[in-house]
Design a protein around this nucleic acid. Sequence first.
RNA 1: UGGCCUAUGGUGUAACUGGCAACACGUCUGAUUUUGGUUCAGAAGAGUCUAGGUUCGAGCCCUAGUAGGCCAACCA
Length: 557
Amino acid sequence: MEQNKKESLNFIEQLIERDVKEGNFKKIYTRFPPEPNGYLHIGHAKSICLNFGLAQKYGGHCNLRFDDTNPEKEETEFVDSIKEDIKWLGFDWGPSAYHTSDYFEQLYQLAICLIEKGNAYVDELSAVQLNELKGSPTEPGKESPFRDRPIEESLEIFKAMKSGAFQNGERVLRAKIDMSSPNMHMRDPILYRIKHMKHHRTGSKWCIYPTYDFAHGQSDSIEQITHSLCTLEFEVHRPLYEWLIQKLEIHPSKQTEFARLNLSYTIVSKRSLRALVEGHYVAGWDDPRMPTISGIRRRGFTAKSIRKFADTIGVARRDGITDVALLEHAVREDLNKTAHRIFGIMDPIKLIITNWPKDYQEIMIAENNPEDEKSGTREMPFTREIFIDRSDFMEDPPSPRKWFRLGPDREVRLKKGYIIKCTGYKKSEKGKVVEIYAEYDPNTKSGQDTSGKKVKGTLGWVSVPNAVLVEIRMYDRLFLTENLNKIEDDFKNHLNPDSLIINTKAVLEPSVRNAQVGDQFQFERIGYFRVDEDSHSERLIFNRTLTLRDGWTKKKN
RNA sequence: UGGCCUAUGGUGUAACUGGCAACACGUCUGAUUUUGGUUCAGAAGAGUCUAGGUUCGAGCCCUAGUAGGCCAACCA
């Protein structure tokens, strides 16, 4: 090997390497802290790959922590799906997953500690009053009349809050910082609120719950997290994050922000995704059009390709919008190497080889994947009647230099079969081509061609008596608008009406008969497809993952 | 009358911390090909938001401006 070029590091890696060099800690700890109130999406995948990837790279560990401080929105269903998705992506959080709710007692003690130090107080103002005193980004806030109440009094009331002496909203615990700070989050932020509500894990043990600011950072400290990575919108919380660490004198985790993922033609916000599910614009969280991890998995995107994608886009502090083409490229790259090839006809039209004996069947051999020698071969019966795709025939085609496929008197190769010449076709009364006639040349059998003929076009085909009728769900992008962050109207106005087209007349070659749910194929010249879990004994159902790259249709336009 | 962050080809990131702007995707040629796929060869495309400044030298530093993002939930 030559002198290896210095590997380029992203800004977080640079930070970590500096920390390592300075010996700031023995081991790197990161964490992935989802709130279990929805399904994970491609944006989370970026964060997962980042946090787990960094831990792997630097010999540290990444914790999975469910940030479950708000019993109103959180459910066990989501905990399970989140675990499944992370595992599928190929990451391991070790023997146990953590929950912020496991720390409720410790957090409560920390709050008491803060009050005792005079850094927090119980307020009795209503939400409305609190808001009024808060000021605005351009106006300073005003101090609450309860701000300077004796420590003992706050302590007493806080304990009473815990024991259920008050109704929702009657008291809050606030940090005592600075009501005139230009940073709104430093204007005596709320640390604890009363919610008489059952929590999905702690049941009704608690009726006070810490807010994000008093739960997240403290949990980081409890877990000895060294690098707490979050998205840019938490940047303004950092001064508070650090203030609490300092006042509480706890493990100094460091918060670092990075830009969240935005993807063209895609919506990446839990709230919006929920709206799509609840409004039945899609079939569910795992609808193959959804950018959820469960959705793209069902669509046929692979874990490997998503990790590759995350690696490609990197991480930075500027926010922009990533072209989905980058994601799609990663998927095609992986599938090209792994997916077995088969022949499939989306829009079948019958072609009769008039000089082929009736009832005679010849077995053709085809390799499963030319990119992978170890993938083996399969058999394909060739018969007098075959299906070809309607789009591969034109009654009056342009010059052979522009159109490689079949037309009257034109010759093409049937891949893994013979070269045929079109001798005619039949039309229905309505003028639709219903049957094509052709003659084959016996000297042109694939692999043992002695004719010397060269043809430009190669077509896929499926033997009529052996064809397998399947259902194909042809998915396309969910939205028509490139940048959905910039729209002003309802994002649902931008839905692609053709994001799902169901094809029930497609036929595949017989080798596909024993395909299992989850199997992925390349239908030659068409695209990548995955056997969907809706498949049943009567009918295989395929999801179109992506089409093949296509330089030809582009050229036409 | 606020504060913080960001600004590099169409898109996403680099540039060994001051030394003639690189990689991937995308686009366009051409070759190969029994997938109009893959692969291969090549091309176009930014002089780094603007204006000053420091310096022998600035995409990297400083100042001002501009543009975009974030911040006023008892959400995370």
